[in-house]
């Protein structure tokens, strides 16, 4: 108390009066923050708890059982949509990473281009277009391409999902990579040029390794976005190649079984694993190149 008194006499303002509300404010923020986190976790915990439901209906708790998990990993009708989801997510991650990385480099490096600003506007438009609008516009277009024009590849369920899911993700990857390239030290490439490296070598040996973390985290982000996609998928998917969310969506209309919660819990564990990998990749990259670790937040785009 005495030390506090000395401090207050120095600053000229009574410390207790000044500090007390600040401390109360801090406590209030802690409470608010923790309640916020509990709110965010609440339905997730509900799903995890109900995934151990022994009953036939997910919504009505009957007793504890591990049967839903055994069913989830053994029933082909549950595993097939998860397989479709993973294949579509892999394709979407690759497509978005390739398109987005190239575009991100172009946007960050090209100064005199007339059409690139238009592309930025277009990418922005892609990001603000509601998914339902993309869904209803892609459905007739895929039918036209596949049935009327004879591009049979677009009758394939996975191809449709990959193309549809990459719309939003490739825009996100573009912006993530652009930010990374813009933050690069141009002297590194100049040094390579001084040492006689041609543009292609410079790109492969210097630029690409430096932007790889952004491209990889962008790809993983596209992967999880694709796994999550429901609205677009439910419109464009083809019978017999439904993705996991489409399968769940269809079950909502009939009966939800506990297996669905069990499978979702397993997928959540997988997502956490991916998230940890992304975090590690970014932390390692920022340590190596001295970049800021705010990249973790840029994962959202």
């Amino acid at each position: 108390m005495t030390t506090v008194g000395i401090e207050s006499s120095q600053s000229g303002i009574p410390t207790q009066e000044r500090r007390a509300p600040v401390k109360a404010g801090k406590v209030a923020l802690w409470i608010w923050g923790i309640i916020g986190l509990l709110f965010l976790f609440f339905p997730v915990l509900v799903i995890i708890a109900y995934s151990f439901n022994s009953g036939n209906n997910l919504q009505i708790w009957e007793g504890f059982s591990l049967q839903p998990y055994l069913n989830a990993i053994s029933r082909p009708d549950l595993l097939a949509p998860v397989g479709v989801s993973f294949r579509a997510a892999t394709g979407s991650a690759l497509l978005s990473a390739i398109l987005g990385t190239f575009a991100g480099i172009a946007l960050a490096r090209s100064q005199k281009s007339r059409w690139l600003p238009a592309l930025v506007g277009l990418l922005g438009l892609v990001m603000v277009t509601p998914e339902i609008v993309n869904a209803v516009s892609l459905l007739p277009w895929f039918v036209t391409l596949g049935k009327d024009m004879g591009f049979v590849i677009f009758n394939d369920g996975i191809v449709r999902l990959v193309v549809g899911h990459s719309l939003f993700s490739s825009a996100v990857v573009t912006f993530v990579v652009r930010a990374r390239v813009a933050g690069l030290n141009p002297q590194l490439e100049e040094a390579a040029a001084d040492l006689g490296a041609n543009p292609l070598r410079r790109f492969i040996d210097v630029t690409l390794p430096l932007i790889a973390p952004a491209a990889v985290s962008g790809a993983l982000l596209s992967f999880t976005l694709s796994l999550d996609n429901t609205v677009l998928s439910s419109f464009i998917s083809v019978a017999n190649s439904n993705s996991w969310p489409v399968y769940v969506w269809a079950s909502v209309k009939s009966t939800l079984r506990p297996e669905i919660a069990a499978m979702s819990t397993l997928l959540l564990l997988f997502t956490i694993l991916v998230l940890v990998i992304v975090a590690l990749v970014l932390v390692r990259a920022s340590k190596r190149t001295g970049g800021d670790d705010a990249n973790l937040s840029s994962m959202l785009g």
Binding site: L40, I47, L58, T224, T230, A261, L268
Partner: peptide
């Protein structure tokens, strides 16, 4: 950083599944 990850985990849980969690919780029964 830990809290940031904690905010991201529910966000990366399937949108549909999260909403179903609320449906289960808020059910009449």
């Amino acid at each position: 950083n830990i809290v940031l990850v904690l905010v991201l985990i529910p966000y990366w849980t399937n949108f549909l599944i999260r909403t179903l969690g609320w449906q289960i919780a808020l059910n009449q029964n």
